[in-house]
Design a protein around this nucleic acid. Sequence first.
DNA 1: GACCGTAACCTACGGTTGAGTAGGTTCAAT
DNA 2: ATTGAACCTACTCAACCGTAGGTTACGGTC
Lengths: 199, 199
Amino acid sequence: MTATERRAQLVEIARTVFAKRGYEGTSVEEIAARAKVSKPIVYEHFGGKEGIYAVIVDREMEYIVRRITEAIATGSPRERVEQAALAFLTYVRDHPDGFAILAQDTPLLSKGGIASLLNDLAERVGGVFAAAFGTAGYDARSAPIYANALIGMVTFVGKWWTDVRKPSVEDVAAHIAALAWMGLRHLPKRPRISGRKTT
Amino acid sequence: MTATERRAQLVEIARTVFAKRGYEGTSVEEIAARAKVSKPIVYEHFGGKEGIYAVIVDREMEYIVRRITEAIATGSPRERVEQAALAFLTYVRDHPDGFAILAQDTPLLSKGGIASLLNDLAERVGGVFAAAFGTAGYDARSAPIYANALIGMVTFVGKWWTDVRKPSVEDVAAHIAALAWMGLRHLPKRPRISGRKTT
DNA sequence: GACCGTAACCTACGGTTGAGTAGGTTCAAT
DNA sequence: ATTGAACCTACTCAACCGTAGGTTACGGTC
């Protein structure tokens, strides 16, 4: 097997293992064993546990950020919220292992306590929010609150959905978007997302 | 030192260690060392790592559940949301180590993937929601979505707040409650919680 | 006052797991 | 025949869980 193929195979395997066991819980030996390969191979390709983990995290992060960025690029504010929720949950459905990894605690990058990589994502979203808040006459300092709140919403619902896998992500996204946009006060009985292509 | 004192001391120390390093990351040896005691003492009192962890988790869970239950016991729906958010964030402020532990991934009780103990809390809240949804003419099956969404909101915001510690929990709670109740659509410029004692 | 039980604690180990490495082997293509 | 890519066995070293067995000190008992 060529170097490139092996790399790709190892990344894929490692992703499922990290997703199931968490960073600390996975051993390089298990990754190697699943790939029917000996340990040094992993070290040759990625330099160690952190190395392969970093590659995976980087790819997933890149991917989800792009998806959300696309989702909030156009449309009315409400449509952006809906599309963002839908994009996130679609990611949860189609890349469950990647989502699990991003939602886990990570010992790397741990500045003080313990945080997941999605907290980092919230920071980026916070930037976007701060800008929008400024032009709309809101206090930009409160933007991070809303960014974290929204990411937290979809993350927790995503974790829950991973277990039950029902109803469809479209329905769940509609509920979340309704909550975020209308609030509990004006919650519709049967929320729907307002058209527009899902691509 | 008497057995009871030692137990109390060990629980307190273990809580801070678990909070900082996570379950897998903490060693019984570190707990013992910080208590200036040898390892077997810990085993004598708690039977092992899981034992002491279980005690801590149980206490914290009990505590936060009671606080939230009290918060949503009376008042208008809106007031309940506000008081619940305030109660949760007050807990985050006053018991940062307990919150950190509840927000971490736990290898115990892991039914399939990896989940935090706050997901479990969301399940309980889901029960309350389902009842309220039934009487209000909403689909009770969608209740877990909202329960998870709300717990996710406060959890993520709580994690973020733990880092920055500003603004006050009262202000943050007001923002969260505003988002949950009014939605982004009718977000007030400067949300406040509507009176009532904080105790 | 010598004796004994018991509570609190210790040192020292066994056994396992897992990260990372040293050095050798196979094999296909030039 | 040589080279180099892909791969392996077989370690070292450290961390850590859990336990076996012994020590100290103190209070009550005869």
